[in-house]
Computed example of a mutant assay.
Amino acid sequence: MRNGAIVWKATVAKKTSSLDKHFTHFLAPKHWLTWCAMGIAYLLSFLPWSLQQSVGKYLGRFLHAIAKRRRHICDVNLKICYPDLTKSERKKLTKDHFESMGKGTIETFASWFQDQKKYQHRITFEGQEVIDKVLAKGRGCILISGHFSSLDICGSQMPRFLDVHPIYKLQKNQVMNWVMERQRQAIFSKTIERTNMREVLKSLKQNKAVWYAVDQDYGRKNSVFAPFYGRQCATIAHIGRIANMTNAPVVLYDYGRTEKGYHLRLVEVENYPTQDDVENATRINELMQAVIEPKKAQYFWSHRRFKTQPIAGDPSPYNK
Protein backbone atom coordinates (compact mmCIF):
# COMPACT_ATOMS: atom_id res chain seq x y z
CA MET A 1 0.00 0.00 0.00
CA ARG A 2 1.12 3.58 -0.62
CA ASN A 3 -0.76 6.65 0.66
CA GLY A 4 -3.83 4.47 1.24
CA ALA A 5 -4.09 3.40 -2.42
CA ILE A 6 -3.59 -0.03 -3.90
CA VAL A 7 -0.29 -0.17 -5.78
CA TRP A 8 -1.08 -3.26 -7.79
CA LYS A 9 -2.15 -4.19 -11.28
CA ALA A 10 -4.10 -7.32 -12.10
CA THR A 11 -2.19 -9.81 -14.18
CA VAL A 12 -4.11 -10.68 -17.30
CA ALA A 13 -1.73 -13.03 -19.08
CA LYS A 14 -2.85 -16.62 -19.26
CA LYS A 15 -0.45 -19.54 -19.39
CA THR A 16 -0.93 -22.23 -21.99
CA SER A 17 -3.72 -24.64 -21.10
CA SER A 18 -4.17 -28.18 -22.38
CA LEU A 19 -7.94 -27.81 -22.76
CA ASP A 20 -7.74 -27.08 -26.49
CA LYS A 21 -5.61 -30.15 -27.27
CA HIS A 22 -6.76 -33.67 -28.17
CA PHE A 23 -5.16 -36.55 -26.28
CA THR A 24 -3.37 -37.65 -29.47
CA HIS A 25 -1.20 -34.56 -29.01
CA PHE A 26 0.38 -36.37 -26.05
CA LEU A 27 1.06 -39.79 -27.58
CA ALA A 28 4.78 -39.34 -28.17
CA PRO A 29 7.01 -42.00 -26.53
CA LYS A 30 8.20 -39.48 -23.92
CA HIS A 31 4.66 -39.52 -22.48
CA TRP A 32 4.15 -43.30 -22.37
CA LEU A 33 5.36 -43.75 -18.79
CA THR A 34 2.94 -41.07 -17.56
CA TRP A 35 0.08 -42.68 -19.48
CA CYS A 36 0.89 -46.00 -17.78
CA ALA A 37 0.79 -44.25 -14.40
CA MET A 38 -2.56 -42.67 -15.31
CA GLY A 39 -3.88 -46.13 -16.21
CA ILE A 40 -2.88 -47.47 -12.79
CA ALA A 41 -4.41 -44.40 -11.15
CA TYR A 42 -7.65 -45.03 -13.03
CA LEU A 43 -7.82 -48.63 -11.82
CA LEU A 44 -7.03 -47.69 -8.22
CA SER A 45 -9.87 -45.18 -8.24
CA PHE A 46 -12.37 -48.07 -8.38
CA LEU A 47 -11.27 -49.52 -5.04
CA PRO A 48 -13.82 -49.33 -2.19
CA TRP A 49 -13.18 -46.35 0.08
CA SER A 50 -11.86 -48.37 3.01
CA LEU A 51 -9.46 -50.21 0.72
CA GLN A 52 -8.38 -46.91 -0.85
CA GLN A 53 -7.44 -45.70 2.62
CA SER A 54 -5.42 -48.85 3.33
CA VAL A 55 -3.62 -48.77 -0.01
CA GLY A 56 -2.94 -45.07 0.44
CA LYS A 57 -1.49 -45.67 3.89
CA TYR A 58 1.00 -48.24 2.57
CA LEU A 59 1.77 -46.08 -0.45
CA GLY A 60 2.64 -43.31 2.00
CA ARG A 61 4.94 -45.64 3.93
CA PHE A 62 6.68 -46.58 0.69
CA LEU A 63 7.13 -42.93 -0.24
CA HIS A 64 8.46 -42.23 3.26
CA ALA A 65 11.08 -44.91 2.74
CA ILE A 66 12.31 -43.69 -0.66
CA ALA A 67 11.66 -39.92 -0.71
CA LYS A 68 14.72 -38.78 1.24
CA ARG A 69 14.50 -35.16 0.06
CA ARG A 70 10.81 -34.80 1.00
CA ARG A 71 11.50 -36.39 4.39
CA HIS A 72 14.20 -33.79 4.94
CA ILE A 73 11.87 -30.92 3.95
CA CYS A 74 9.18 -32.23 6.29
CA ASP A 75 11.65 -32.55 9.17
CA VAL A 76 12.95 -28.99 8.64
CA ASN A 77 9.40 -27.60 8.60
CA LEU A 78 8.50 -29.42 11.78
CA LYS A 79 11.67 -28.19 13.51
CA ILE A 80 10.73 -24.62 12.60
CA CYS A 81 7.04 -24.85 13.47
CA TYR A 82 7.23 -27.19 16.48
CA PRO A 83 10.63 -26.59 18.10
CA ASP A 84 9.51 -28.31 21.32
CA LEU A 85 8.91 -31.68 19.63
CA THR A 86 11.48 -34.35 20.40
CA LYS A 87 13.27 -36.11 17.56
CA SER A 88 11.11 -39.23 18.00
CA GLU A 89 7.92 -37.12 18.00
CA ARG A 90 9.05 -35.43 14.78
CA LYS A 91 9.77 -38.78 13.19
CA LYS A 92 6.32 -40.07 14.10
CA LEU A 93 4.57 -36.96 12.78
CA THR A 94 6.63 -37.19 9.58
CA LYS A 95 5.60 -40.81 9.10
CA ASP A 96 1.95 -39.95 9.81
CA HIS A 97 2.21 -37.11 7.30
CA PHE A 98 3.47 -39.42 4.55
CA GLU A 99 0.70 -41.92 5.26
CA SER A 100 -1.84 -39.10 4.98
CA MET A 101 -0.29 -37.93 1.70
CA GLY A 102 -0.45 -41.48 0.36
CA LYS A 103 -4.16 -41.57 1.17
CA GLY A 104 -4.54 -38.20 -0.51
CA THR A 105 -2.90 -39.52 -3.68
CA ILE A 106 -5.48 -42.30 -4.01
CA GLU A 107 -8.25 -39.81 -3.17
CA THR A 108 -7.02 -37.56 -5.98
CA PHE A 109 -7.40 -40.45 -8.43
CA ALA A 110 -10.93 -41.00 -7.14
CA SER A 111 -11.75 -37.31 -7.60
CA TRP A 112 -10.48 -37.45 -11.20
CA PHE A 113 -11.99 -40.70 -12.41
CA GLN A 114 -15.10 -41.45 -10.33
CA ASP A 115 -18.58 -39.98 -10.12
CA GLN A 116 -18.42 -37.73 -7.07
CA LYS A 117 -21.93 -38.77 -6.02
CA LYS A 118 -20.24 -42.00 -4.95
CA TYR A 119 -18.73 -40.17 -1.94
CA GLN A 120 -21.60 -37.89 -0.94
CA HIS A 121 -22.59 -40.04 2.01
CA ARG A 122 -19.11 -39.58 3.47
CA ILE A 123 -19.34 -35.79 3.50
CA THR A 124 -20.49 -33.62 6.39
CA PHE A 125 -20.88 -29.92 5.67
CA GLU A 126 -21.08 -26.88 7.91
CA GLY A 127 -21.71 -23.36 6.65
CA GLN A 128 -24.77 -23.10 4.41
CA GLU A 129 -25.84 -19.98 6.28
CA VAL A 130 -22.41 -18.46 5.58
CA ILE A 131 -22.87 -18.99 1.84
CA ASP A 132 -26.34 -17.48 1.91
CA LYS A 133 -25.12 -14.44 3.84
CA VAL A 134 -22.05 -13.57 1.77
CA LEU A 135 -23.60 -14.17 -1.66
CA ALA A 136 -26.61 -12.05 -0.71
CA LYS A 137 -24.23 -9.08 -0.93
CA GLY A 138 -23.87 -9.72 -4.68
CA ARG A 139 -20.09 -9.37 -4.79
CA GLY A 140 -19.15 -13.02 -4.91
CA CYS A 141 -16.69 -14.27 -2.31
CA ILE A 142 -13.06 -15.24 -1.96
CA LEU A 143 -12.66 -18.72 -0.53
CA ILE A 144 -9.29 -19.31 1.18
CA SER A 145 -7.86 -22.60 2.35
CA GLY A 146 -4.62 -24.39 3.12
CA HIS A 147 -3.10 -27.41 1.39
CA PHE A 148 -4.15 -30.64 3.07
CA SER A 149 -3.86 -34.16 1.75
CA SER A 150 -7.60 -34.46 1.05
CA LEU A 151 -7.54 -31.32 -1.12
CA ASP A 152 -8.85 -32.89 -4.33
CA ILE A 153 -11.53 -35.18 -2.92
CA CYS A 154 -12.90 -32.47 -0.61
CA GLY A 155 -12.66 -29.83 -3.32
CA SER A 156 -14.60 -32.01 -5.73
CA GLN A 157 -17.52 -32.03 -3.27
CA MET A 158 -17.76 -28.25 -2.87
CA PRO A 159 -19.91 -27.67 -6.02
CA ARG A 160 -22.73 -29.46 -4.19
CA PHE A 161 -22.95 -26.50 -1.85
CA LEU A 162 -21.40 -23.57 -3.70
CA ASP A 163 -20.58 -22.65 -7.31
CA VAL A 164 -16.86 -22.32 -6.73
CA HIS A 165 -14.17 -21.45 -9.29
CA PRO A 166 -10.85 -22.88 -8.08
CA ILE A 167 -7.51 -21.29 -8.86
CA TYR A 168 -4.95 -23.84 -10.06
CA LYS A 169 -1.32 -24.03 -11.06
CA LEU A 170 -0.28 -25.74 -14.28
CA GLN A 171 2.03 -28.71 -13.74
CA LYS A 172 5.23 -29.42 -15.65
CA ASN A 173 3.94 -32.80 -16.81
CA GLN A 174 1.78 -32.18 -19.89
CA VAL A 175 -0.18 -35.45 -19.68
CA MET A 176 -1.03 -34.83 -16.03
CA ASN A 177 -2.21 -31.35 -16.97
CA TRP A 178 -4.40 -32.78 -19.73
CA VAL A 179 -6.04 -35.24 -17.33
CA MET A 180 -6.28 -32.82 -14.41
CA GLU A 181 -7.78 -29.93 -16.36
CA ARG A 182 -10.41 -32.08 -18.06
CA GLN A 183 -11.47 -33.87 -14.92
CA ARG A 184 -11.76 -30.63 -12.97
CA GLN A 185 -13.66 -29.04 -15.84
CA ALA A 186 -16.21 -31.84 -15.48
CA ILE A 187 -16.62 -31.07 -11.76
CA PHE A 188 -16.45 -27.27 -11.61
CA SER A 189 -18.38 -24.82 -13.78
CA LYS A 190 -15.11 -22.94 -14.25
CA THR A 191 -11.45 -23.26 -13.26
CA ILE A 192 -8.95 -20.40 -13.38
CA GLU A 193 -5.21 -20.64 -14.04
CA ARG A 194 -3.53 -18.66 -11.28
CA THR A 195 -2.05 -15.89 -13.50
CA ASN A 196 -5.41 -15.09 -15.13
CA MET A 197 -6.56 -12.26 -12.87
CA ARG A 198 -9.08 -11.04 -15.42
CA GLU A 199 -11.12 -14.23 -14.97
CA VAL A 200 -10.89 -13.93 -11.17
CA LEU A 201 -12.45 -10.47 -11.26
CA LYS A 202 -15.03 -11.63 -13.80
CA SER A 203 -16.14 -14.51 -11.55
CA LEU A 204 -16.50 -12.24 -8.54
CA LYS A 205 -18.54 -9.80 -10.60
CA GLN A 206 -20.85 -12.69 -11.49
CA ASN A 207 -21.34 -13.37 -7.75
CA LYS A 208 -19.33 -16.61 -7.78
CA ALA A 209 -16.85 -17.94 -5.26
CA VAL A 210 -13.18 -17.93 -6.23
CA TRP A 211 -11.05 -20.43 -4.32
CA TYR A 212 -7.42 -19.75 -3.43
CA ALA A 213 -5.11 -22.06 -1.47
CA VAL A 214 -3.04 -19.39 0.27
CA ASP A 215 -0.32 -21.17 2.22
CA GLN A 216 2.51 -21.83 -0.23
CA ASP A 217 5.60 -19.86 -1.14
CA TYR A 218 5.16 -18.32 -4.61
CA GLY A 219 8.32 -16.26 -4.43
CA ARG A 220 9.32 -12.73 -3.53
CA LYS A 221 7.57 -10.99 -6.45
CA ASN A 222 4.00 -11.90 -5.44
CA SER A 223 4.46 -11.96 -1.67
CA VAL A 224 4.99 -10.02 1.52
CA PHE A 225 6.69 -11.43 4.60
CA ALA A 226 4.52 -12.31 7.57
CA PRO A 227 4.93 -14.70 10.52
CA PHE A 228 3.87 -18.31 10.16
CA TYR A 229 4.44 -20.34 13.32
CA GLY A 230 6.66 -17.51 14.52
CA ARG A 231 8.93 -17.37 11.47
CA GLN A 232 8.77 -14.80 8.69
CA CYS A 233 7.74 -16.41 5.42
CA ALA A 234 6.67 -15.28 1.97
CA THR A 235 2.86 -15.03 1.94
CA ILE A 236 0.79 -14.09 -1.09
CA ALA A 237 -0.56 -10.56 -0.94
CA HIS A 238 -3.30 -11.05 -3.56
CA ILE A 239 -6.11 -11.92 -1.18
CA GLY A 240 -6.25 -8.64 0.71
CA ARG A 241 -5.67 -6.68 -2.48
CA ILE A 242 -8.48 -8.39 -4.39
CA ALA A 243 -10.82 -8.03 -1.40
CA ASN A 244 -10.01 -4.32 -1.16
CA MET A 245 -10.50 -3.85 -4.90
CA THR A 246 -13.82 -5.71 -5.17
CA ASN A 247 -15.29 -5.55 -1.63
CA ALA A 248 -15.83 -9.31 -1.94
CA PRO A 249 -16.26 -11.09 1.41
CA VAL A 250 -13.54 -13.55 2.39
CA VAL A 251 -14.53 -17.01 3.63
CA LEU A 252 -12.27 -19.57 5.29
CA TYR A 253 -12.66 -23.06 3.83
CA ASP A 254 -11.60 -25.67 6.37
CA TYR A 255 -11.67 -29.33 5.34
CA GLY A 256 -10.14 -32.62 6.31
CA ARG A 257 -10.33 -36.38 6.52
CA THR A 258 -12.24 -38.05 9.35
CA GLU A 259 -12.49 -41.70 10.39
CA LYS A 260 -15.54 -42.23 8.20
CA GLY A 261 -15.09 -39.64 5.46
CA TYR A 262 -14.55 -35.88 5.25
CA HIS A 263 -15.75 -32.72 6.95
CA LEU A 264 -16.12 -29.39 5.11
CA ARG A 265 -16.60 -26.12 7.00
CA LEU A 266 -17.03 -22.50 5.88
CA VAL A 267 -16.50 -19.50 8.18
CA GLU A 268 -16.68 -15.85 7.15
CA VAL A 269 -13.50 -13.91 7.95
CA GLU A 270 -14.65 -10.84 9.87
CA ASN A 271 -12.93 -7.44 9.84
CA TYR A 272 -10.81 -8.30 6.83
CA PRO A 273 -9.04 -6.85 4.91
CA THR A 274 -7.24 -3.84 6.30
CA GLN A 275 -5.31 -1.40 4.12
CA ASP A 276 -1.97 -3.00 5.02
CA ASP A 277 -0.58 -5.99 3.07
CA VAL A 278 1.49 -7.33 5.96
CA GLU A 279 -1.42 -7.15 8.42
CA ASN A 280 -3.61 -9.00 5.91
CA ALA A 281 -0.96 -11.68 5.30
CA THR A 282 -0.44 -12.10 9.05
CA ARG A 283 -4.17 -12.69 9.51
CA ILE A 284 -4.16 -15.25 6.70
CA ASN A 285 -1.29 -17.16 8.31
CA GLU A 286 -3.02 -17.09 11.70
CA LEU A 287 -6.11 -18.63 10.11
CA MET A 288 -3.98 -21.32 8.46
CA GLN A 289 -2.34 -22.20 11.77
CA ALA A 290 -5.75 -22.54 13.40
CA VAL A 291 -6.97 -25.08 10.84
CA ILE A 292 -3.69 -27.02 10.81
CA GLU A 293 -3.55 -27.72 14.53
CA PRO A 294 -6.48 -30.20 14.80
CA LYS A 295 -5.09 -32.30 11.92
CA LYS A 296 -1.34 -31.74 11.77
CA ALA A 297 -0.52 -34.95 9.89
CA GLN A 298 -2.80 -34.00 7.00
CA TYR A 299 -0.96 -30.75 6.23
CA PHE A 300 1.54 -30.44 3.34
CA TRP A 301 4.67 -30.39 5.52
CA SER A 302 6.77 -31.78 2.67
CA HIS A 303 6.43 -28.53 0.68
CA ARG A 304 9.09 -25.83 1.09
CA ARG A 305 7.00 -23.27 2.93
CA PHE A 306 10.04 -21.21 4.01
CA LYS A 307 12.18 -21.38 0.85
CA THR A 308 12.15 -17.59 0.11
CA GLN A 309 14.14 -15.69 2.72
CA PRO A 310 13.30 -12.17 3.95
CA ILE A 311 16.84 -11.08 3.03
CA ALA A 312 17.63 -11.97 -0.57
CA GLY A 313 20.67 -14.18 -0.75
CA ASP A 314 20.28 -15.76 2.68
CA PRO A 315 20.46 -19.56 2.50
CA SER A 316 17.31 -21.65 2.46
CA PRO A 317 16.68 -23.66 5.63
CA TYR A 318 16.33 -26.73 3.41
CA ASN A 319 19.95 -26.58 2.25
CA LYS A 320 22.00 -29.40 3.70
Rank of each mutant, 00 (worst) to 15 (best):
R2M: 14
N3E: 09
I6T: 08
S17I: 07
D20S: 14
D20R: 12
F23H: 14
F23E: 06
T24C: 13
L27M: 10
T34K: 10
C36D: 05
A37N: 05
L44T: 09
L44E: 04
L47G: 05
W49E: 01
S54A: 10
L59P: 06
G60D: 02
F62H: 00
K68G: 07
K68A: 14
R69E: 15
R69S: 14
R70D: 15
R71G: 10
Y82K: 08
D84S: 15
D84A: 12
T86P: 07
T86I: 09
T86G: 15
K87Y: 11
K87L: 13
S88R: 07
K91L: 08
T94W: 04
K95R: 11
F98K: 00
E99S: 11
E99L: 07
G102Q: 06
T108Q: 15
K117T: 15
K118Y: 02
Q120V: 10
E126D: 15
G127Q: 04
L135W: 04
K137F: 00
I142P: 09
L143D: 03
L162E: 02
K169Y: 10
L170N: 06
Q174Y: 03
V175K: 00
M176T: 14
M176E: 05
E181H: 01
R182C: 06
F188P: 07
I192H: 00
I192L: 02
R194F: 04
V200M: 11
A209T: 07
W211D: 00
V214W: 00
Q216C: 02
V224M: 07
Y229N: 08
I239H: 10
G240K: 04
G240A: 02
G240Y: 02
A243I: 06
N244Q: 12
T246Y: 10
A248E: 02
Y253G: 06
G256T: 01
R257L: 00
T258A: 13
Y262T: 03
H263E: 03
H263Q: 08
V267Q: 11
N271L: 09
Q275P: 00
E279F: 01
N280D: 15
T282D: 04
R283N: 08
I284T: 11
E286P: 01
L287H: 10
K295A: 09
K296H: 08
F300C: 01
W301M: 02
W301E: 08
T308G: 01
Q309C: 05
P315F: 06
Y318R: 05
Y318C: 07
K320L: 10
